[in-house]
C-alpha cells in the first residue's frame, strides 16, 4: 500500500516534469493583445498608475466582488464555528 503511494507520487512527478519540459517557454507569452490594451489605456480610462489595481477594481470588478465575498464568507464561517453555545453559558 505504501509502495503503491510512492509509485503514484513518482509517476505524478514524472508527469509534471514532462509537462514542464514541453511547456511554452517562460518570458515569451503570445496573444498579449488584451494585456497590451490594459497597459496602454489603463491610465487614461481608470486614472490609476498601477495597472494591476486598475484591472482589479475597474475592468474585472466582479472578480474582486467575488473574492471579497469569499473572504467575508470564510470569516463568517470561522466565527460561526467557534460561537458560544447557548446552554454552555
Amino acid at each position: 500500500m505504501k509502495a503503491l503511494r510512492h509509485l503514484t507520487m513518482a509517476a505524478f512527478f514524472c508527469f509534471l516534469l514532462a509537462g514542464a519540459m514541453y511547456m511554452h517557454g517562460v518570458g515569451t507569452p503570445e496573444r498579449t493583445q488584451m494585456d497590451d490594451y490594459f497597459i496602454k489605456s489603463s491610465q487614461e480610462e481608470t486614472g490609476a498608475n498601477n495597472v494591476v489595481t486598475g484591472i482589479l477594481f475597474d475592468y474585472r470588478g466582479f472578480d474582486t466582488l467575488g473574492e471579497a465575498s469569499v473572504l467575508f464568507a470564510a470569516a463568517s464561517g470561522v466565527i460561526l464555528l467557534f460561537r458560544r453555545k447557548r446552554n454552555e453559558q
Binding site: 490594459f38 491610465q43 498608475n49 495597472v51 494591476v52 473574492e67 469569499v70 473572504l71 470564510a74
Partner: peptide, 30 residues
C-alpha cells in the same frame, strides 16, 4: 506593470498578476 516612476513601458502582463492576487486571498481564507 506600474507607471509610477517607471523607466519604460515594456511591462509584464498585468492580468495574471491580478488573478494571482485573487487566488492568494482565497487560499488565505480557505
Amino acid at each position: 506593470p506600474i507607471f509610477t516612476a517607471s523607466r519604460n513601458a515594456w511591462m509584464s502582463l498585468p492580468t495574471p498578476q491580478a488573478l494571482t492576487l485573487t487566488s492568494i486571498v482565497i487560499s488565505l481564507a480557505v
